[in-house]
């Protein structure tokens, strides 16, 4: 991990008539990075930009050496994105089939597919639920399934946009542990949970579509809390 995994230089994103992100320059080196800021500050736009779901309007961007605007397909093979709403992330009717869906494009031999899916479900505690209809699961189980579907592809970078927003405390903690656990992936975690942000190695603070803080969790979180207190 020598060259910065994520590097932005003067990046701007314009959506419709709005400059949602402006003059964004930063290097992210740490394995786990939290992104915090008020509603509408541009966190989701930043996450979608890193995930290759939207393109920049100006500037330069490199993610693990890849320019998403040029090699979007390659980038998507190496990263995974997790969203807040599990209902919109689950596609197949049963748990095991949904996990396998993430590997469809790889056209693996059946034995290897079964093995990979089985191992991933085991890791996320979904083995008992393998044949259950995925839309009948509880919210927490659904989000674990969404996470399992993201992780089964062994991504190098996981981008999570408020992945615990809809969960109760216990399920939020389970999801967070899986995200923070070092399974060989980097993590960019958008969250309103400051205790969770404090557990990342680096924190990014957004306000009004601009970067206003980047550094150690303690420092940036107190900077944010000072703004909130006003």
């Amino acid at each position: 991990m020598s060259a910065p995994a994520i590097r932005l230089k003067d990046v701007g994103v314009r959506l419709g008539e709005v400059d949602v992100l402006q003059n964004l320059s930063l290097d992210l080196q740490a394995r786990t990075v939290a992104v915090i800021g008020e509603n509408g500050s541009g966190k989701s736009t930043f996450a979608r930009l890193l995930g290759g779901l939207i393109n920049r309007t100006s500037g330069e961007l490199s993610i693990m050496g890849i320019d998403p605007a040029r090699r979007a397909a390659e980038l998507r093979r190496r990263i995974a994105i997790v969203f807040s709403n599990p209902d919109a992330q689950i596609i197949m009717p049963t748990v095991a089939e949904d996990v396998a869906f993430s590997l469809r494009a790889d056209r693996l031999p059946p034995a290897e597919l079964t093995q990979r899916v089985g191992a991933a479900m085991e890791r996320f505690g979904l083995t008992e639920l393998a044949q259950r209809p995925s839309h009948d699961l509880s919210g927490g189980q659904k989000q674990l399934l969404a996470l399992c579907g993201a992780m089964v592809r062994n991504p190098e970078l996981v981008i999570a946009d408020e992945p615990t927003a809809y969960l109760d405390a216990r399920n939020a903690r389970r999801v967070a542990e899986h995200l923070l656990e070092d399974a060989g992936h980097r993590l960019v975690l958008v969250t309103h949970d400051l205790a969770l942000a404090a557990r990342c190695e680096q924190v990014v603070l957004f306000a009004g579509g601009a970067l206003v803080g980047l550094g150690e969790p303690e420092e940036i979180i107190s900077q944010y809390e000072a703004v909130l207190a006003c």
Binding site: R48, L53, A80, I81, F83, A88, Q89, S102, R104, R153
Partner: peptide, 10 residues
């Protein structure tokens, strides 16, 4: 949301 999720899932 589903469109984003499909893209994200390859």
């Amino acid at each position: 949301e589903l469109g984003d999720a499909l893209t994200a899932r390859g």
